[in-house]
Design a binder for these strands. Structure first.
Length: 263
DNA sequence: ATGACTCCCAGTGGGAGA
């Protein structure tokens, strides 16, 4: 029998809610059933004055948010207050609200909504590549200050063919280009690990299913929402799962939450 | 198959998402 006091395990989650105005009731329901220590949200699609902070506080969560009109928008909810909040990538000037970071219980939590990129020959793809360069440089700096770090969110990158329901059809398409996958690997090369792949997982595990074409019913999706943990945290990760249940709600988000457990 | 659905801002249509 050990007399060493143990730190209780903690759970962190990420969820692209595709409009918090529409999905707030689903978020509150999910948090009641899954009382994680922190969750980062993407695509809140709310200006800061419209953010539903009070309802979130009443559900027992502190919250930091960073939004804009119509598109993007991120938030960091936590049981304990988050400190040292950073909005967007330090050193990369961005008009779009895509990143929020804070320290929760000694763990640096970075929540990010990576650019979609639209198509490999588009201006939006060029922006995605520049944004990814900026993110990597900044995360490298954050890691120096915070060895215990989690980078999670909607990466809009399917890292490998096994993360794609039809890799032949998607070859070279947005989310699956070699350039995007190289950027994912570059984040891994900072010492980060894809927590989901630390464990045996069901085949055909996705985090996003198109609204069209009965994609969820046919389980045709992509795994593009990820939780990357730093080298120091990696040995303490005990589980990582995708929760498909909210995708079965009425009026669901097209993305499912991903949850990591750290002892 | 240049589609399909959903959200937003708009305003009886169109952009964006992935």
């Amino acid at each position: 029998m050990s007399s060493t006091p143990s730190t209780p395990s903690r759970r962190f989650a990420t969820w692209n809610v595709n409009s918090l105005a529409v999905r707030l009731p689903q978020l509150l329901d999910w948090l009641a059933a899954n009382p994680v220590d922190a969750i980062v949200l993407q695509e809140t699609k709310l200006t800061d004055d419209k953010f539903p902070a009070q309802a979130i506080n009443e559900a027992g969560y502190q919250v930091q948010w960073f939004g804009q009109k119509t598109y993007n928008g991120v938030a960091l909810l936590s049981r304990e207050p988050a400190t040292d909040i950073v909005r967007n990538i330090l050193g990369y000037a961005d008009e779009q609200a895509r990143v929020i970071a804070g320290t929760v219980g000694g763990v640096r939590v970075i929540g990010a909504y990576f650019p979609n990129g639209q198509a490999p020959d588009s201006d939006k793809f060029t922006y995605k590549m520049a944004w990814l360069d900026g993110l990597r440089a900044w995360v490298a700096e954050e890691l120096k200050q915070h060895p215990d770090l989690v980078l999670m969110g909607d990466f809009n990158i399917a890292p490998e063919d096994r993360d794609v329901y039809d890799p032949v059809a998607w070859a070279g398409q947005i989310h699956c280009t070699p350039q995007e996958r190289d950027h994912f690997k570059a984040l891994v090369d900072l010492g980060m690990t894809d927590a989901f792949r630390l464990f045996e997982q069901p085949l055909k595990s996705w985090s996003w299913w198109d609204y069209r074409n009965l994609a969820f019913r046919k389980n045709q999706g992509l795994r593009i929402d990820h939780i990357l943990v730093s080298e120091a945290l990696r040995p303490r990760v005990t589980a990582c799962v995708i929760d498909k249940l909210p995708r079965k709600n009425e009026r669901p988000s097209d993305h499912a939450p991903v949850i990591v457990t750290i002892d």
